[in-house]
């Protein structure tokens, strides 16, 4: 039971990194009341991955130029994610419009992904692996890319956290006080987009969405301040990744599904405990 050999696994470090850093980005989505964005965006990234496999199957030169499937997936995820986020960032002041657009984007991305994969066996297998978060075959290149992009996003998100959170929580006050709202929305879109795009191409949309949202919601029930909330969310993410990995390792279950199911269980248990003890 206490076999710690999983610590040598690259896939564990990828999951741990996601658990540590995704909550920093996920709280942008919760603070901006845009959880739908966290749901839609990984799906857009996945549509980008599917698009690259679709193009490669049709022999398009710029899709076949990538030497392996992992690089092609990265390129595809970033191709759609960043422009989509920048476009979605612009009408943010109208919440209803944003939610409507997010629902539209989610539906369009899911249907196009399925259509592009309908006659593409290679792409279908790759996307299915991503969807279940099967990290076991993660390459060195993939984990280095993931670490660099998450690390950069973390540094930016922490350095500018006050401006970003102000723009998200009270855009009117921020504007009157002199904050350039459009600029910060675009910066936020670039930070979120790079994390989501690279994460989806590496670990899939389920794990990405799970780590973005579950830790943030789980610890919101007991944290007392933004600072403690962030620290606990990161701790929750790492614990979930570790425990999920151990369960997956011992019982031979898909890693991504195990981690996300455990995160959901953690969220439900924390809410239940709070309901019982804080009545």
């Amino acid at each position: 039971m206490w076999d710690l050999s999983f610590l040598q696994s690259k896939s564990y470090w990828a999951a741990g990194l996601m658990g540590l850093i995704c909550p920093v980005i996920g709280r942008h989505m919760v603070m901006g009341r845009a959880i739908m964005l966290g749901l839609a965006l990984p799906q857009v990234s996945l549509a980008g991955v599917a698009f690259m496999f679709f193009g490669a199957a049709l022999g398009w030169g710029w899709c076949t130029a990538f030497k392996d499937d992992a690089t092609r997936a990265f390129a595809g995820a970033m191709l759609l994610t960043l422009p989509a986020l920048v476009l979605l960032a612009l009408p943010r002041r109208s919440v209803k419009l944003s939610e409507g657009w997010l629902a539209f984007v989610f539906l369009a991305a899911v249907s196009l992904t399925n259509l592009m994969l309908s006659s593409n066996a290679v792409g279908e297998v790759y996307i299915e692996d991503l969807f279940h978060g099967r990290l076991l075959l993660i390459s060195d290149t993939a984990i280095i890319t993931l670490a660099i992009s998450l690390g950069c996003a973390f540094v930016f998100a922490m350095a500018f956290r006050r401006r970003i959170l102000l723009a998200l929580t009270d855009p009117d006050f921020a504007t009157v006080s002199g904050l350039k709202l459009t600029r910060w929305n675009v910066i936020l879109a670039l930070i979120n987009g790079s994390v989501v795009g690279v994460s989806v191409a590496t670990v899939g949309p389920l794990v990405t969405f799970g780590f973005l949202i579950l830790p943030v919601l789980a610890v919101a029930t007991f944290a007392r301040s933004l600072r403690t909330h962030l620290i606990w969310a990161m701790v929750f993410g790492v614990i979930t990744a570790t425990a999920g990995f151990v369960i997956s390792y011992h019982y031979d279950l898909p890693l991504g599904d195990s981690v996300v199911a455990l995160g959901c269980a953690g969220l439900a248990i924390i809410h239940a405990l709070r309901a019982i003890f804080c009545r």
Binding site: R162, R163, L166, F173, S177, A223, L226
Partner: peptide, 28 residues
């Protein structure tokens, strides 16, 4: 200095009164 209607200042995550002031002041 702008004080919006209270409803516009609801924050969906835990935040202390001090942090509200700190966020606002850091804008510029």
């Amino acid at each position: 200095g702008y004080v919006p209607q209270q409803a516009a200042s609801d924050v969906p995550l835990p935040i202390t009164a001090f942090e509200i002031v700190e966020l606002g002041a850091s804008a510029l």
